[in-house]
């Protein structure tokens, strides 16, 4: 447990950046990264269900449209905060990138 805590401590910055100009962007980046992570999970699940034939035509269409719009919205919000798609990721060091 202590080793895990030490590993985690290495991943975290020693000082929290409280620059008011950047704190909003940093928070947006963290939130949007998590949203993007969930969006990609949903997308995978939707494709799996479509390919497995467990969705009706109408459900496939509605789910596809919803996921398409969600992607557009994430991109739009990221752009507003000056973030690119590559910014919506977390480096989990020994585990690699989140996305």
């Amino acid at each position: 447990m202590s080793a895990s805590r030490a590993d985690l401590a290495d991943l975290l910055p020693e000082k929290i950046d409280i620059d008011p100009e950047r704190v909003e962007q940093g928070l947006a980046q963290l939130v949007l990264t998590l949203v993007e992570f969930l969006r990609q999970l949903l997308e995978r699940q939707a494709v799996r269900r479509m390919e497995g034939g467990s969705l009706s035509e109408d459900e496939v269409e509605r789910m596809g449209i919803a996921l398409m719009r969600l992607e557009e919205k994430v991109e739009e919000l990221a752009k507003q905060f000056g973030l690119t798609k590559e910014d919506l990721n977390l480096d989990l060091k020994p585990l690699g990138k989140l996305l």
Binding site: V47, M50, E57, V60, G64
Partner: peptide, 15 residues
């Protein structure tokens, strides 16, 4: 031919 299914099929191809 419909946008929702096309989106998911495109993603399915990419996956």
């Amino acid at each position: 031919s419909t946008p929702g299914r096309r989106f998911l099929e495109t993603r399915g191809q990419a996956f």
